[in-house]
Design a protein around this nucleic acid. Structure first.
Lengths: 195, 195, 195, 195
DNA sequence: AATGAATGAGAGTTCATTCAT
DNA sequence: AATGAATGAACTCTCATTCAT
């Protein structure tokens, strides 16, 4: 039941927003009563916190696996992490959007906890890029911090438009992103190089 | 007064969220009473709609100027639009974040209107890229739609981390984004090309 | 209106108890709506606090007048304070009972404030008795503190049984209490003194 | 277990109040579950009723012993009953306070039963005083009813301030009360008799 | 142009109680 | 003898909105 409540809430929070979704909405959706909700969750806040933790901890775990995979080079790791995010759209889109939009509604205690895990993810990404720079995979003069923000912006934005059931597969999208990031979009053979 | 209400609301909506900000919060902030608010705005909704329209229409206008500037090549236009967005962070950050987060709270009538203007902006961007492909500035095999989403994701995300008062100027950030997008991050001189 | 709410609440709180009286009960009694209540009072707590302060401050004021009246001897002052309390039963019975029963439901901040004023009243009483001992009106070996508690117990208890509309007037009750306290109940002329 | 529930409840009801104490509070305090509570008590009401009956019946029993002790004169009986109440503060303070504060929360059926026993106690007290008047121990012109209310007020109030572990023993307090009641506080040797 | 009083619907939460196991 | 899941009614409080002035 506790899990059913969370699943329903994720759907509704993503759809209408955390504040706009009432406990009544959630329990109506499940055909139970408000008392039931409060049997499993101390408050609406706690539910939101659980959704956040669930999401970010899952993401961190998967990221770690990629980063610690010594069989992969930097380019492969980059691919894997981007793919990791993109492929999570299918299963985690709603959680991810809640994660990115509703953090403000967490209370102070959890805001900080979540903020730190979010940062851990970003810094893990960034370190991987710095490694790639050191080992010569990536250009030497890159701003790894900004590049990280840029990559995350690009992938995170995908949660708002990419449809994994559509014409483009997750692998293809990841490939396209990689091509852009690795080689750029400038046509060097147009006779007006670096115009 | 009407404008003062909007400015206060933008600040508060960005800070706490639309639903979490009460009319009382707004009028307290200004030291007036609720009656005043309703003298100028029919409803909270209408205020939100005005904030949305204000933002997107300003953006569209500026975009048009760039797109219609026949003195600029595709690369320059790309630079200008990215710079347009980045430099709006200083003056429009709060509006932009509200625009990207609170659209859900518009009523059906305005949802559609805003959605279309948002799309107009995106398609304008996309067309510019397609032109660049046609005229040989950009690589021929690019997916202009996805590239547009990617670029927008990158720039829009900047609203959440970039500090225009910080060590990095708006021009520098735009330059860095351009370098990444135009030439990529792969180090081709590492002896292991396209590893 | 604010005052009407307080008067209604005093009646209801005394009748059913603070916790057992809902805001709904109060506004139903007055034929208004819950919103009205919260227009005048920030919370149910605040209302309770106001009732407490109203009561104890009124009492302290009247006590001060008696204590500062230099035309009165100690016995007269004793009479006056007892009469003060007894005669307040007619107009303040409900407030007094709330004051004595519901202090627990105040929040910490106000608990302390009220506790101090309550103590001020008691210590004022006690000092008056000590004066009477010093000036020879009362017996020299009395425990003024315990006597004060005893007197207060006796008078406060009256709020639960004395009916000012009944056969006994306020003056008569005060007189009876005075007689007991001044001269005791023991019949010294019974041939078996101090049996 | 049933008794442990009652003991825990007495502590909590006295501390926070009947309405403010939830069944959950009680069972948490004991480390059991709500089901257990309802195995032993039909309802929260029933528990409150049991606490009331327990208290008043114990008191009545002890009172009866005193009243029926033909070896005691009226003054001794008075002493014994006051001592009975004062000494019950140590063991029964919490029950007594609940008894005096929470009667309102009993349902109609039990309100009446309790009211009658409470009255029986008071009338027993009063009769004893009337006997003392008849047999010449007490002054002939006393209002026994009011005197009884006064005595009870004085002793009952002690439940809110007297600390049996403090500097004053139960015997001493009773003695002080007796002195006041028997002989009064007026100093007859001050040269201004009955001033 | 602005106020202050009032509304009414709905929010999150608590809680005594029931019942199958 | 005791549990844990579930209920449903009631509770305090919030808030967008209205309207006479």
């Amino acid at each position: 039941m506790k899990d059913k409540i969370m699943q329903a809430s994720i759907r509704l929070f993503d759809d209408k927003g955390y504040s706009e979704t009432s406990i009544q909405d959630i329990v109506d959706y499940l055909g139970v009563t408000k008392g039931s909700f409060y049997y499993y969750y101390k408050s609406k806040q706690e539910l939101l916190k659980d959704i956040h933790l669930n999401y970010i901890e899952g993401l961190l775990e998967k990221q770690e696996q990629v980063l610690n995979d010594s069989s992969k080079g930097s380019v492969d790791k980059l691919y894997s992490i981007i793919f990791l995010v993109i492929s999570s759209i299918r299963t985690q889109r709603q959680s991810a959007r809640i994660f990115n939009r509703e953090g403000r509604n967490l209370d102070e205690t959890h805001t900080e906890e979540i903020r730190q895990k979010r940062q851990t993810f970003r810094l893990g990404f960034q370190q991987m890029i710095e490694e790639g720079i050191k080992n010569g995979s990536f250009k030497p003069d890159l701003r790894s911090d900004i590049l990280t923000f840029g990559l995350l912006g690009m992938t995170n934005w995908s949660f708002y438009w990419f449809n994994p059931e559509g014409e483009l597969s997750e692998e293809e999208l990841t490939r396209i992103y990689m091509d852009i990031f690795l080689y750029g979009i400038k046509n060097e053979e147009d006779g007006n190089p670096r115009k």
